[in-house]
């Protein structure tokens, strides 16, 4: 009975592993085969040799590299801004007592209740009024705005955990409040900052809706828009589309392998071990 139960557990978990990884693996497999092969059987190994030209076709395309650059620019800027702004706010809400704290905190929480895609049309109208359409800032600023509340809450929890005695000691040693933030709290909270940064990197690298509305100029498009356009153009040429997909999956997987610790820390408040 116990053995049977054990086998059942593994069968269940392995079945799910197939469901989870199967689509990804078939996509990668498809990317090195001709479209004809992909059409006839999604699993088989390449019969006509590995189709590297699926990849060289994309990698020699200047549009692709421009999209990589755009995505990188948007992601890095949004991440740096979000980390700085959220840690400022988190510090105030974790460490400083002042009148109206509750009210401000509730305004901040409002941002968590309205995800970006729900508020997209109002944001779009505002971007139109501010003449920010078709500029990177029109993508970055709303991105930072909607990333700030959640990340402030995450950081605030970590900041609160840093003992009060440390803060008092630093003041006695002549540190200013800003000095305490800059030289003691921020360095001490580095793992949680890294966690937040990782989450923002993932979100802004993947953002699709905002650039879709804001950026008309194809020269400004990030990768998610680029691949949609590519799919529209080469939709039936599965090999090429899958190669593009694979080129986006592989960095994500590598990033995930290195950043898993931080992602998990950020999402679970540092509570998940192992």
């Amino acid at each position: 009975m116990k053995l049977f139960l054990n086998i059942l557990k593994y069968v269940f978990v392995l079945f799910l592993t197939v469901v989870m990884s199967g689509p990804i693996l078939t996509a990668i497999l498809g990317s090195i085969r001709t479209s004809g092969e992909v059409y006839s059987n999604p699993f088989a190994l390449p019969k006509n040799g590995i189709q590297w030209e699926n990849y060289t076709f994309i990698l020699t395309n200047p549009d692709f590299w421009r999209q990589v650059a755009n995505s990188t620019y948007i992601t890095v800027t949004a991440t740096v801004m979000t980390v700085i702004i959220s840690s400022f706010l988190a510090f105030i809400f974790a460490r400083v007592d002042f009148r109206g704290r509750e009210i401000w905190f509730n305004i901040l929480m409002l941002g968590m209740l309205f995800p970006l895609s729900v508020a997209i049309l109002p944001v779009f109208i505002q971007l139109m009024n501010l003449k920010l359409l078709d500029s990177f800032w029109g993508v970055i600023l709303p991105m930072v705005t909607f990333a700030t509340p959640g990340n402030t809450v995450i950081l605030r929890n970590f900041f609160t955990a840093i003992p009060q005695e440390l803060e008092d000691a630093s003041y006695i040693d002549g540190c200013s409040t800003f000095g305490f933030f800059r030289y003691i709290l921020f360095p001490m909270a580095r793992p949680s900052i890294a966690a937040v940064a990782t989450l923002v990197v993932v979100a802004s690298w993947n953002e699709f809706f905002l650039p879709l509305l804001v950026l008309n100029d194809p020269n400004k498009w990030p990768l998610p828009l680029g691949i949609m356009q590519f799919q529209g153009q080469f939709g039936t040429d599965y090999g090429k589309v899958l190669a593009f997909i694979t080129l986006l999956i592989i960095p994500s997987v590598i990033f995930y392998i290195f950043a898993e610790k931080y992602i998990v820390t950020g999402l679970t408040g540092g509570e998940l071990k192992g």
Binding site: I92, W104, P122, I125, Q126, T148, P149
Partner: peptide, 21 residues
């Protein structure tokens, strides 16, 4: 100083758009 960047963004891209819409 610590409030301004965050809450100006929240005002510009969250609070104001809601009331405008």
């Amino acid at each position: 100083l610590f409030f301004l960047p965050g809450f100006s963004l929240l005002f510009l891209f969250l609070v104001m758009p809601i009331f405008q819409s």
